[in-house]
Design a protein around this nucleic acid. Structure first.
Lengths: 253, 253
DNA sequence: ATCCCGTTCCGTACGATGTACCGTACACAG
DNA sequence: CTGTGTACGGTACATCGTACGGAACGGGAT
């Protein structure tokens, strides 16, 4: 899968599927909800690559093709998975906006929650988020995350832009973290170990004098957070700069 | 492919492959370079999903398994593709740092070049950038992009953090754009058309009063750049905030 | 000239995958 | 009790990456 996103074809079908109640069960007790939750369980535990229709069906004790009675295809299934995961983000719509402190603390809260979300469900990062899935939980998420930006001196468009900026930052940084985790898991080496193994081969072939700044900075960064990159630090550093920039925009009025 | 990234196994092998000269050709004239360039051509034109070992071999007029004489597997091939693409970024290492204007203009130049890169090679966004591929061109890129940040009052670690922040922003925003492009291409509908088709089904099921802020802001944003999101605007807006934040960091010393 | 051996090429085959197609068997309305 | 719509799922197909092992070649040693 990965880069796929045909958008299914019929938008109305997808909308109905996302917003429907999914309670009707046939004689084998199969439900859309059960399918989605099983799929999330597999993806959480073994990654998106391990998620196949056969595996889902097997785990549900059901024939593979029975899934297609409830779900049009795998793409729509992943759409449902994403919207379901969004549902776990906030207890209620006012969670971010009722955060103590101003909009800045609220946005830090939003960033932290999204960061945690991608930690729990790394597979979300692998699903190309094409034209955002407009499910009920995604809509609630958007509403919840927008509210703290109300009435602080931003236009509607700026509110949307600021939120997009923050979420893009979190997602991108989470992607870096997820990649590091995956390499670590698949090679059995920590990042530090990996560099120790690669360094000799690299030094033999790479003339450090051609990259004076890069090698100095790379060295410094590597030592500071043992491992070439520290996603947690990147998250905080970046968010601080972004929020400073937004504050400057507001103050400049 | 998509979410894969086994890191191949032997790091030394990958390093040698990336930094090697790739000039030795066998009796059929097959080269690593030719394989990589053909692969890039396919991915550029038809997307990463259309890239298969069979297609590459076919286009080269060669048996599929012959590729494996020169390249260990598909994952390593994509590593080579990425480093090759990086090679097209700057004419020389000093391109960004010799930009007229200060570090700010230089970083805008860097952002614009990366933005263009992802426009030309959208498949790069689909390849999970695990433990960054340390090829020769990637190293040059890092050096080139770091140089404009020299001597402006940032520590080594901050230099790295700032660059990471900017590149993450560009990549994330490019990902949004690529997704929109792909939906547009696969459905044959422009984004505006898509929303027009989906809106009726959505309105029937979604109670706008539950999402007061979201629907107001979404409406405003949608009208401003006809289409729910305007990646180009998001790029500029975000970059401006980020650079303001960095400027504040420097000024605060 | 002959042989040998290392390398390059590639045909075949295997185990995956998503899902189209179509028969079966059940639950419920009449 | 019977008729019919829906849920279920077995089989099959195209596609993928690539393991395996044989064929074909080029160049060095005899």
């Amino acid at each position: 899968m990965d880069g796929k996103r045909s958008s299914g074809g019929d938008p109305a079908r997808s909308v109905a599927l996302l917003w429907g109640s999914h309670t009707k069960a046939g004689r084998s007790g199969l439900t859309v909800r059960a399918i989605v939750e099983t799929a999330i369980g597999i993806a959480d535990a073994e990654g998106l690559d391990a998620l196949s229709m056969r595996r889902v069906a097997e785990r549900l004790g059901v024939g593979t093709m029975s899934l297609y009675t409830h779900v049009p295809g795998k793409i729509e299934l992943t759409d449902l998975m994403i919207d379901t995961a969004y549902g776990q983000l906030y207890d209620d719509v006012d969670a971010p906006s009722s955060q103590p402190g101003g909009w800045r603390e609220a946005m830090e809260f939003v960033a932290a929650r999204n960061w945690d979300l991608y930690l729990r469900h790394p597979w979300m990062l692998q699903i190309v988020t094409a034209r955002p899935v407009v499910g009920p939980n995604a809509s609630l998420k958007y509403e919840a995350e927008l509210r703290p930006l109300e009435g602080i001196g931003l236009s509607d468009i700026e509110m949307d832009s600021v939120l997009t900026l923050i979420l893009t930052h979190v997602e991108g940084t989470a992607r870096i973290r997820a990649s590091l985790d995956q390499v670590q898991q698949s090679t059995g080496m920590s990042e530090t170990e990996w560099w120790l193994v690669s360094a000799p081969a690299l030094e033999k072939v790479m003339d450090a004098s051609r990259f004076p700044v890069a090698s100095r900075v790379g060295q410094a960064a590597g030592q500071a957070h043992n491992g070439a990159t520290d996603p947690a630090h990147a998250l905080d550093f970046g968010l601080a700069r972004i929020l400073d920039g937004v504050a400057a925009l507001i103050a400049g009025r």
